[in-house]
Design a protein around this nucleic acid. Structure first.
Lengths: 341, 341
DNA sequence: CTGAAAGCGCTTACAG
DNA sequence: CTGAAAGCGCTTACAG
């Protein structure tokens, strides 16, 4: 393993010059740079990151707590992690994974990781209503960026990036409306989570704007399962035989809707248009395919990394980015769409 | 941020003694240790990891390449990552995530990460038939451990941990047999992957052992989708109306089987028993629940980390661990099981 | 059991 | 544009 010193000796310059060739090449004369680069190449030199980090006290590592909540399946986590990694790598950084207890009990882990200089900062996700992590990190002046809002009335501590769920629901409603649907229901979640209220609100507003009914058309499912989605859909159809559209809060609930429609001899995309949320792998694997609102993972990741690693000091508390989801249209909402048989 | 020097000054000992208090406490007299520890506590001292790594040239970081193959959904990746992180943390280590092109094109990334001392070694997963990474890493003498076999005739380079797919299929067959099933089919995959052949073989052997028929009962699906699982199931039922069991190579294919059974008015778990593989979040979210073969993630992760970080030199090429899957029984194979309505 | 000193491999003002 | 020197915060033989 070659060191800076050896490269310097080989190129017959000082170590400082080799360091500059790597970190500030414009400071070298063209011929010197050329010579140094040849030596680097020849000796297959790779700078030792630990030495660099010790000196600069920046590790170029970003901490991400890998969630462990079997209750709420995170079907697009691999997509998110891949996008996050790729975005970090574009800035020469990497993602360090760790586990921590949920809520405020986990904060010592964050603190320790930062204090021991294993990471420069954190990306938070799986934010919850009244998530305590943001305030805690801000108080300790530990850099972080949140994917997801905290949904409090007061201002959220620290910067965040999120996807506009209300806009997503509205897109789904308008899409179904354009396909001629006039009685569009909404499948929601049990707990009054900020996320659920956001998406529910978007559905309600869009329906009102288009002059569509909403009364009795919003159902709260008891959990995020196919069975519950099916049950709620059955309930809706029993109460309103003219129902012709369903916007579901998740792909899982939407799958339940599809199943119940099938059970009743109704054809998704023909008799009733159905949409889901998140464009999980499931959406593309059912038949007909499930129309779903995709979170723009690459954009999200790029924003997260860009805000967190902004060289102009620590992230400003006022940095907030609300991105738009994208409606991926498949057969469940558009007859003759991309069905898969 | 306190340093070792400051702690030493505060405790009125040398830095060496503080270092020993942390890394070799048995070398100190009880009262000295006590005093040093008080100072550490008081100054809230945390050793700088970069300084340590520079000195010892061990970073205590393990690289894992986050896969990006939309073709093959990895529904249990979050479980795997959580288990891997937790196991690493039990040894004071962490997981560093990175992206790399598939196959041999990605090897320079692995090499660079190791040469620049960002990681000590790698955990490989998503192994493919004739995966080139193992041989390459072994040749470069870069430490690694593989989750999954390479399925070559020759000996696999480097140590590995895997789950016995053949044993899993056999468990599923025996379970269905005990429930009275006598004509048990197998839903397989298109390409002749090692994984598929392993699981298929286990089904065939178990059937033969039990005196059950196999002829015409193995179907290859064109892709890992619900639609294909349903199509194949339809084909099987058309050919053999007495079919009463289906072992599917994946939860996705099993879901297809469930759907086709429903479409034909057959009740899963009553008329036909169905099992899947991997116990993905889907298995618990459908109704009836899907019986599925769980990979023992915690054990897998513990073995991976233990072999990779074995202090007795680099992992021996002969280290091989074949773990058993666990059959999680739900309503799809056992009438009155844990159905969810 | 405890301490003084060297050194891990870089970067960064500072001089020339 | 280039170089000599100090120092980031640890650990590790080595002496005492």
């Amino acid at each position: 393993m070659a060191t800076l010193k050896q490269v310097a000796a080989h190129a017959e310059v000082s170590v400082q010059t080799v360091s500059n060739a790597l970190n500030a090449p414009h400071r070298l004369r063209a011929d010197t740079l050329e010579r140094v680069n040849r030596s680097i190449e020849l000796l297959n030199y790779r700078p030792n990151r630990n030495a660099r980090s010790l000196r600069t006290s920046a590790v170029e590592l970003i901490g991400y707590c890998v969630p462990n909540w079997p209750t709420q399946t995170h079907l697009v986590m691999d997509q998110f992690l891949h996008a996050l990694c790729a975005a970090a790598e574009r800035t020469g950084r990497h993602i360090l994974l760790f586990t921590a207890p949920p809520g405020v009990d986990g904060m010592p882990v964050y603190d320790d990781l930062h204090a021991r200089r294993l990471v420069d900062g954190f990306v938070l996700s799986q934010t919850e209503t009244h998530d305590p992590r943001h305030g805690w990190l801000k108080e300790q002046e530990i850099p972080f960026i949140s994917f997801g809002r905290v949904w409090k009335e007061t201002t959220q501590p620290g910067p965040w990036v999120d996807v506009d769920g209300a806009a997503g629901s509205a897109m789904a409603v308008r899409h179904l409306h354009e396909a001629g649907r006039r009685r569009i229901a909404f499948l929601s979640w049990p707990k009054s989570s900020g996320l659920a209220e956001d998406r529910l609100g978007g559905w309600g507003n869009a329906c009102k704007e288009l002059g569509l009914p909403t009364s009795g058309l919003a159902v709260r499912c008891r959990e995020d399962s196919i069975a519950e989605g099916a049950r709620a859909t059955g309930e809706l159809l029993d109460a309103d035989p003219f129902l012709d559209g369903i916007v579901a809060l998740s792909d899982i609930l939407a799958l339940g809707a599809l199943r119940e429609l099938g059970r009743r001899g109704l054809t998704p995309g023909v008799d009733v248009g159905v949409t889901g949320f998140d464009d999980s792998p499931l959406a593309d694997v059912v038949s007909p395919g499930l129309t779903s609102l995709r979170q723009p993972m690459d954009d999200i990741a790029a924003e997260l990394i860009s805000i967190l690693t902004d060289p102009d000091g620590p992230p400003d508390a006022s940095t907030e980015r609300l991105l738009h989801p994208e409606l991926v249209i498949r057969g469940s909402s558009a007859p003759g769409g991309s069905t898969r048989y």
